[in-house]
Simulated assay, not measured.
Amino acid sequence: MFKPNKVVIHELQKSPDHAGITWFLSDKLAGVKPSDYISLEKMIRGFDREGVFHGYFGEPEINPFAASFKSYFTSQKEDEQFVAFTKEVVPQLNHLLDKKHFARGGYYVFCEYEFENNKGLGIFLVRDTEGTLFKVDDKSHSFQLDKIKYMETDKMAMGCQIDYIKYRSEGQKCLAFTHNRQKEVSDYFVEWIGCQNRKSGKESTEDLYKLIDAIRDELPINPNTNEKVTAEKLKEDIFNLVESEQTKTLDLQTIGKHLFNDNMFFLNKARAHKIEIDSSFKLHKSTFAKYNLFDVKDDDLGIKLKFPKHRFGDRRTIKIKNEGADRKLIIESPSLIDQILRRLEQMGNE
Protein backbone atom coordinates (compact mmCIF):
# COMPACT_ATOMS: atom_id res chain seq x y z
CA MET A 1 0.00 0.00 0.00
CA PHE A 2 1.30 3.44 -0.93
CA LYS A 3 1.51 6.10 1.78
CA PRO A 4 3.03 9.57 1.27
CA ASN A 5 4.52 10.86 4.53
CA LYS A 6 5.82 14.26 3.45
CA VAL A 7 5.27 16.25 0.24
CA VAL A 8 6.82 19.57 -0.77
CA ILE A 9 6.32 21.31 -4.12
CA HIS A 10 8.53 24.09 -5.51
CA GLU A 11 7.89 25.90 -8.78
CA LEU A 12 10.52 26.86 -11.35
CA GLN A 13 9.44 29.87 -13.39
CA LYS A 14 11.51 29.99 -16.58
CA SER A 15 10.81 30.51 -20.25
CA PRO A 16 12.94 28.57 -22.73
CA ASP A 17 13.24 31.77 -24.79
CA HIS A 18 14.63 33.94 -22.01
CA ALA A 19 17.52 33.80 -19.59
CA GLY A 20 16.94 34.11 -15.88
CA ILE A 21 15.44 31.81 -13.29
CA THR A 22 12.79 32.50 -10.66
CA TRP A 23 11.73 30.05 -7.96
CA PHE A 24 8.63 29.90 -5.82
CA LEU A 25 9.89 27.94 -2.81
CA SER A 26 7.31 26.56 -0.39
CA ASP A 27 7.86 27.16 3.30
CA LYS A 28 5.69 24.29 4.48
CA LEU A 29 4.60 20.80 3.49
CA ALA A 30 1.91 20.57 0.83
CA GLY A 31 -1.54 19.72 2.10
CA VAL A 32 -2.15 16.17 0.87
CA LYS A 33 -5.53 14.50 1.26
CA PRO A 34 -6.17 10.74 0.88
CA SER A 35 -7.85 11.54 -2.43
CA ASP A 36 -4.48 12.89 -3.66
CA TYR A 37 -2.64 9.64 -2.95
CA ILE A 38 -3.52 8.12 -6.31
CA SER A 39 -1.80 10.96 -8.22
CA LEU A 40 1.38 10.59 -6.18
CA GLU A 41 1.29 6.81 -6.48
CA LYS A 42 0.98 7.18 -10.27
CA MET A 43 4.28 9.05 -10.29
CA ILE A 44 5.98 6.30 -8.26
CA ARG A 45 4.56 3.55 -10.47
CA GLY A 46 5.39 5.64 -13.53
CA PHE A 47 9.00 4.54 -13.16
CA ASP A 48 8.12 1.07 -14.42
CA ARG A 49 6.05 2.44 -17.26
CA GLU A 50 8.72 4.89 -18.42
CA GLY A 51 11.65 2.52 -17.93
CA VAL A 52 14.50 3.01 -15.48
CA PHE A 53 18.24 3.05 -15.05
CA HIS A 54 20.13 2.79 -11.76
CA GLY A 55 23.21 4.32 -10.22
CA TYR A 56 25.09 5.44 -7.11
CA PHE A 57 25.31 8.83 -5.44
CA GLY A 58 28.52 10.72 -6.08
CA GLU A 59 30.80 11.41 -3.13
CA PRO A 60 29.22 14.01 -0.76
CA GLU A 61 32.52 15.91 -0.71
CA ILE A 62 32.10 16.83 -4.38
CA ASN A 63 28.34 16.41 -4.83
CA PRO A 64 26.21 19.14 -3.17
CA PHE A 65 22.95 17.21 -3.51
CA ALA A 66 24.44 14.06 -1.95
CA ALA A 67 25.84 16.13 0.92
CA SER A 68 22.48 17.81 1.57
CA PHE A 69 20.62 14.50 1.43
CA LYS A 70 23.09 12.82 3.79
CA SER A 71 22.60 15.65 6.29
CA TYR A 72 18.80 15.24 6.12
CA PHE A 73 18.90 11.42 6.20
CA THR A 74 20.97 11.38 9.39
CA SER A 75 18.71 13.96 11.07
CA GLN A 76 15.46 13.33 12.93
CA LYS A 77 13.64 13.81 9.61
CA GLU A 78 11.17 16.28 11.06
CA ASP A 79 8.83 18.15 8.71
CA GLU A 80 10.85 21.36 9.02
CA GLN A 81 14.08 19.51 8.22
CA PHE A 82 12.51 17.97 5.12
CA VAL A 83 11.33 21.36 3.85
CA ALA A 84 14.76 22.88 4.59
CA PHE A 85 16.50 20.07 2.70
CA THR A 86 14.35 20.58 -0.42
CA LYS A 87 14.84 24.36 -0.32
CA GLU A 88 18.58 23.81 -0.09
CA VAL A 89 18.92 21.47 -3.06
CA VAL A 90 16.56 23.14 -5.53
CA PRO A 91 18.70 26.29 -6.03
CA GLN A 92 21.62 23.97 -6.80
CA LEU A 93 19.94 23.61 -10.19
CA ASN A 94 20.52 27.26 -11.09
CA HIS A 95 24.00 26.88 -12.58
CA LEU A 96 22.76 23.96 -14.71
CA LEU A 97 19.56 25.60 -15.92
CA ASP A 98 21.06 29.03 -16.57
CA LYS A 99 23.12 27.68 -19.46
CA LYS A 100 20.28 25.53 -20.82
CA HIS A 101 18.24 27.72 -23.14
CA PHE A 102 15.84 24.83 -23.79
CA ALA A 103 14.91 24.55 -20.08
CA ARG A 104 11.29 25.24 -19.22
CA GLY A 105 9.42 25.91 -16.04
CA GLY A 106 7.74 23.22 -14.02
CA TYR A 107 7.00 21.86 -10.57
CA TYR A 108 9.58 19.95 -8.56
CA VAL A 109 7.69 17.52 -6.34
CA PHE A 110 9.49 15.94 -3.36
CA CYS A 111 7.59 13.02 -1.86
CA GLU A 112 8.86 10.90 1.04
CA TYR A 113 6.80 7.72 1.01
CA GLU A 114 6.26 4.14 2.16
CA PHE A 115 5.55 1.60 -0.56
CA GLU A 116 5.79 -2.21 -0.73
CA ASN A 117 7.62 -2.62 2.60
CA ASN A 118 10.14 0.04 1.74
CA LYS A 119 10.73 3.73 2.28
CA GLY A 120 12.09 6.21 -0.19
CA LEU A 121 12.13 9.68 -1.62
CA GLY A 122 10.69 10.51 -5.02
CA ILE A 123 11.73 13.68 -6.83
CA PHE A 124 9.70 14.54 -9.92
CA LEU A 125 9.69 17.27 -12.52
CA VAL A 126 6.08 17.77 -13.62
CA ARG A 127 4.75 20.23 -16.18
CA ASP A 128 1.38 21.94 -16.08
CA THR A 129 -1.05 21.95 -18.95
CA GLU A 130 -4.27 23.74 -19.83
CA GLY A 131 -7.61 22.00 -19.71
CA THR A 132 -11.30 22.79 -19.80
CA LEU A 133 -13.65 22.76 -16.80
CA PHE A 134 -17.42 22.44 -17.15
CA LYS A 135 -18.88 24.89 -14.65
CA VAL A 136 -22.57 25.33 -13.79
CA ASP A 137 -23.92 28.87 -14.03
CA ASP A 138 -26.88 29.00 -11.64
CA LYS A 139 -28.21 32.25 -13.09
CA SER A 140 -28.55 30.99 -16.65
CA HIS A 141 -29.08 27.39 -15.52
CA SER A 142 -26.48 26.22 -18.04
CA PHE A 143 -22.89 25.05 -18.31
CA GLN A 144 -20.02 27.47 -18.94
CA LEU A 145 -16.54 26.45 -20.10
CA ASP A 146 -13.60 27.68 -18.04
CA LYS A 147 -9.92 27.20 -18.80
CA ILE A 148 -7.88 25.73 -15.97
CA LYS A 149 -4.27 24.69 -15.42
CA TYR A 150 -3.41 21.38 -13.82
CA MET A 151 -0.33 19.19 -13.30
CA GLU A 152 0.01 16.13 -15.54
CA THR A 153 1.16 13.80 -12.79
CA ASP A 154 0.93 10.74 -15.03
CA LYS A 155 3.33 12.31 -17.55
CA MET A 156 6.54 13.13 -15.71
CA ALA A 157 9.16 15.17 -17.50
CA MET A 158 11.77 13.43 -15.33
CA GLY A 159 11.93 11.57 -12.04
CA CYS A 160 14.31 10.05 -9.51
CA GLN A 161 13.77 7.65 -6.62
CA ILE A 162 16.11 7.24 -3.67
CA ASP A 163 15.72 3.85 -1.97
CA TYR A 164 16.28 4.36 1.77
CA ILE A 165 17.13 0.71 2.54
CA LYS A 166 19.75 0.61 -0.22
CA TYR A 167 21.10 4.01 0.76
CA ARG A 168 21.58 2.78 4.32
CA SER A 169 23.47 -0.26 2.98
CA GLU A 170 26.53 1.39 1.52
CA GLY A 171 27.73 0.16 -1.86
CA GLN A 172 24.26 -0.45 -3.32
CA LYS A 173 22.73 1.43 -6.22
CA CYS A 174 20.11 3.44 -4.36
CA LEU A 175 19.20 5.77 -7.25
CA ALA A 176 16.66 5.00 -9.96
CA PHE A 177 15.92 7.42 -12.81
CA THR A 178 13.24 7.39 -15.45
CA HIS A 179 14.38 7.19 -19.03
CA ASN A 180 13.55 10.38 -20.91
CA ARG A 181 13.49 10.86 -24.66
CA GLN A 182 14.63 14.47 -24.16
CA LYS A 183 18.28 13.74 -23.47
CA GLU A 184 19.02 17.31 -22.36
CA VAL A 185 16.39 17.08 -19.60
CA SER A 186 17.73 13.71 -18.45
CA ASP A 187 21.31 14.96 -18.44
CA TYR A 188 20.79 18.01 -16.24
CA PHE A 189 18.48 16.14 -13.87
CA VAL A 190 21.00 13.30 -13.46
CA GLU A 191 23.85 15.79 -13.05
CA TRP A 192 21.90 17.69 -10.38
CA ILE A 193 21.21 14.56 -8.31
CA GLY A 194 24.78 13.41 -8.90
CA CYS A 195 24.34 9.92 -10.33
CA GLN A 196 27.61 8.03 -10.72
CA ASN A 197 28.59 4.58 -11.99
CA ARG A 198 25.56 3.55 -13.97
CA LYS A 199 25.35 -0.19 -14.47
CA SER A 200 27.52 -1.65 -17.19
CA GLY A 201 26.07 -3.74 -20.00
CA LYS A 202 27.78 -6.77 -18.47
CA GLU A 203 26.10 -6.20 -15.08
CA SER A 204 22.69 -5.66 -16.68
CA THR A 205 23.09 -8.77 -18.84
CA GLU A 206 23.84 -10.83 -15.72
CA ASP A 207 20.75 -9.28 -14.07
CA LEU A 208 18.64 -10.40 -17.04
CA TYR A 209 19.98 -13.94 -16.80
CA LYS A 210 19.23 -13.94 -13.04
CA LEU A 211 15.68 -12.68 -13.71
CA ILE A 212 14.93 -15.35 -16.33
CA ASP A 213 16.09 -18.09 -13.97
CA ALA A 214 13.97 -16.65 -11.16
CA ILE A 215 10.77 -16.72 -13.26
CA ARG A 216 11.33 -20.02 -15.10
CA ASP A 217 8.26 -21.54 -13.39
CA GLU A 218 6.12 -18.46 -14.08
CA LEU A 219 6.65 -18.17 -17.82
CA PRO A 220 3.40 -17.99 -19.77
CA ILE A 221 2.17 -19.35 -23.07
CA ASN A 222 3.69 -17.57 -26.05
CA PRO A 223 0.67 -15.94 -27.75
CA ASN A 224 2.40 -16.25 -31.13
CA THR A 225 3.02 -20.02 -30.90
CA ASN A 226 0.54 -21.14 -28.20
CA GLU A 227 3.40 -23.09 -26.59
CA LYS A 228 4.66 -22.96 -23.01
CA VAL A 229 7.83 -20.90 -22.87
CA THR A 230 10.87 -22.42 -21.18
CA ALA A 231 13.67 -20.38 -19.61
CA GLU A 232 16.19 -21.80 -22.08
CA LYS A 233 13.97 -21.03 -25.08
CA LEU A 234 13.38 -17.51 -23.76
CA LYS A 235 17.13 -16.87 -23.56
CA GLU A 236 17.52 -18.17 -27.11
CA ASP A 237 14.67 -15.98 -28.39
CA ILE A 238 16.10 -12.86 -26.74
CA PHE A 239 19.57 -13.48 -28.14
CA ASN A 240 18.22 -14.18 -31.63
CA LEU A 241 16.00 -11.09 -31.51
CA VAL A 242 18.94 -8.84 -30.67
CA GLU A 243 21.08 -10.56 -33.32
CA SER A 244 18.41 -10.24 -36.02
CA GLU A 245 17.89 -6.53 -35.37
CA GLN A 246 21.64 -5.95 -35.36
CA THR A 247 21.40 -3.62 -32.39
CA LYS A 248 23.54 -3.49 -29.30
CA THR A 249 20.71 -2.16 -27.16
CA LEU A 250 18.21 -4.47 -25.52
CA ASP A 251 14.90 -2.87 -24.51
CA LEU A 252 12.94 -5.07 -22.10
CA GLN A 253 9.67 -3.30 -22.83
CA THR A 254 10.01 -3.88 -26.58
CA ILE A 255 10.98 -7.53 -26.08
CA GLY A 256 8.13 -8.09 -23.61
CA LYS A 257 5.69 -6.72 -26.17
CA HIS A 258 7.19 -8.84 -28.96
CA LEU A 259 7.29 -12.14 -27.06
CA PHE A 260 4.31 -11.89 -24.70
CA ASN A 261 2.26 -8.95 -26.00
CA ASP A 262 3.00 -7.25 -22.65
CA ASN A 263 5.57 -4.46 -22.57
CA MET A 264 5.65 -4.53 -18.75
CA PHE A 265 6.22 -8.30 -18.46
CA PHE A 266 9.91 -8.22 -17.49
CA LEU A 267 9.75 -5.04 -15.39
CA ASN A 268 6.78 -6.30 -13.36
CA LYS A 269 8.52 -9.64 -12.77
CA ALA A 270 11.72 -7.85 -11.74
CA ARG A 271 9.83 -5.77 -9.19
CA ALA A 272 8.02 -8.84 -7.83
CA HIS A 273 11.31 -10.72 -7.39
CA LYS A 274 13.17 -7.62 -6.14
CA ILE A 275 15.71 -7.83 -8.94
CA GLU A 276 17.10 -4.44 -9.88
CA ILE A 277 17.42 -4.25 -13.64
CA ASP A 278 17.64 -1.38 -16.11
CA SER A 279 14.85 -1.41 -18.66
CA SER A 280 17.20 -0.64 -21.53
CA PHE A 281 20.88 -1.49 -21.78
CA LYS A 282 23.61 -2.69 -24.10
CA LEU A 283 23.48 -6.47 -24.16
CA HIS A 284 26.89 -7.92 -23.34
CA LYS A 285 26.71 -10.68 -25.92
CA SER A 286 29.74 -12.65 -24.78
CA THR A 287 28.36 -12.75 -21.22
CA PHE A 288 24.92 -13.84 -22.41
CA ALA A 289 26.39 -16.41 -24.79
CA LYS A 290 28.69 -17.76 -22.09
CA TYR A 291 25.69 -18.90 -20.10
CA ASN A 292 23.49 -19.93 -22.98
CA LEU A 293 25.34 -20.78 -26.20
CA PHE A 294 27.88 -23.29 -27.44
CA ASP A 295 30.15 -21.79 -30.08
CA VAL A 296 32.75 -24.41 -31.16
CA LYS A 297 34.73 -25.23 -34.28
CA ASP A 298 37.13 -27.79 -35.76
CA ASP A 299 39.63 -25.93 -37.92
CA ASP A 300 40.99 -29.17 -39.44
CA LEU A 301 37.57 -30.27 -40.64
CA GLY A 302 36.36 -26.75 -41.39
CA ILE A 303 33.21 -27.28 -39.30
CA LYS A 304 31.71 -24.69 -36.96
CA LEU A 305 28.75 -25.25 -34.65
CA LYS A 306 26.73 -22.67 -32.74
CA PHE A 307 23.70 -23.83 -30.78
CA PRO A 308 21.75 -23.04 -27.57
CA LYS A 309 22.49 -24.99 -24.43
CA HIS A 310 19.02 -26.53 -24.15
CA ARG A 311 19.58 -28.45 -27.41
CA PHE A 312 22.37 -30.48 -25.84
CA GLY A 313 22.21 -33.70 -23.77
CA ASP A 314 20.35 -36.99 -23.54
CA ARG A 315 17.18 -37.18 -25.61
CA ARG A 316 18.04 -33.80 -27.12
CA THR A 317 18.91 -32.74 -30.67
CA ILE A 318 22.68 -32.79 -30.07
CA LYS A 319 24.35 -35.65 -28.18
CA ILE A 320 27.84 -36.91 -27.44
CA LYS A 321 28.93 -40.55 -27.31
CA ASN A 322 32.19 -40.70 -25.38
CA GLU A 323 33.15 -44.33 -24.67
CA GLY A 324 36.87 -44.96 -24.98
CA ALA A 325 37.86 -44.82 -28.64
CA ASP A 326 34.21 -44.56 -29.67
CA ARG A 327 33.75 -40.77 -29.56
CA LYS A 328 30.96 -39.32 -31.67
CA LEU A 329 28.97 -36.14 -31.97
CA ILE A 330 25.39 -36.95 -32.99
CA ILE A 331 23.05 -34.31 -34.40
CA GLU A 332 19.43 -35.30 -34.99
CA SER A 333 17.95 -32.75 -37.34
CA PRO A 334 15.77 -33.66 -40.35
CA SER A 335 15.95 -29.99 -41.38
CA LEU A 336 19.75 -30.05 -41.57
CA ILE A 337 19.65 -33.33 -43.51
CA ASP A 338 17.23 -31.85 -46.03
CA GLN A 339 19.37 -28.71 -46.41
CA ILE A 340 22.56 -30.74 -46.99
CA LEU A 341 20.85 -33.05 -49.51
CA ARG A 342 19.45 -30.09 -51.43
CA ARG A 343 22.85 -28.44 -51.47
CA LEU A 344 24.52 -31.68 -52.68
CA GLU A 345 21.97 -31.89 -55.47
CA GLN A 346 22.64 -28.28 -56.46
CA MET A 347 26.40 -28.88 -56.43
CA GLY A 348 25.97 -31.97 -58.63
CA ASN A 349 24.10 -29.92 -61.20
CA GLU A 350 26.57 -27.05 -61.21
Rank of each mutant, 00 (worst) to 15 (best):
Q182S: 15
A103Y: 06
E116R: 11
V90G: 00
A176E: 12
F124V: 02
V185C: 02
C160E: 06
F124G: 00
C111W: 05
V109S: 01
Q144H: 14
Q182F: 14
D187R: 13
A157V: 11
F69R: 07
F102C: 05
V136N: 08
K173N: 11
I123V: 03
M151N: 14
Y164V: 04
R104V: 09
L97E: 00
K149I: 11
L121E: 02
Y72V: 04
Y188P: 00
G159N: 03
F134S: 12
E114F: 06
K87T: 07
S204R: 11
G131T: 11
T86S: 08
E114Y: 10
A176D: 00
K147G: 11
E114W: 07
F177Q: 00
C174M: 08
N197D: 14
I123L: 07
K199W: 12
S142M: 08
R198A: 09
C160Q: 05
N118E: 15
K166E: 10
R198V: 13
F143K: 04
Q92S: 07
F134V: 10
S200N: 04
Q196A: 14
V90T: 10
E78N: 08
T74F: 14
N94P: 05
K99D: 09
I193K: 04
H95E: 08
E152N: 15
H179Y: 13
T132W: 11
K100C: 03
M156P: 02
D154L: 03
E88D: 08
V90P: 01
Y164C: 00
G201Y: 09
P64M: 09
R127L: 12
Y164Q: 03
V109Q: 01
H141S: 13
V90N: 02
T74V: 09
N118I: 05
V185R: 00
L175E: 04
C160P: 02
M151L: 15
F177V: 01
K119R: 12
E80K: 11
I148M: 10
E114L: 08
E88L: 06
N117I: 05
V83F: 03
K149P: 03
K147Q: 14
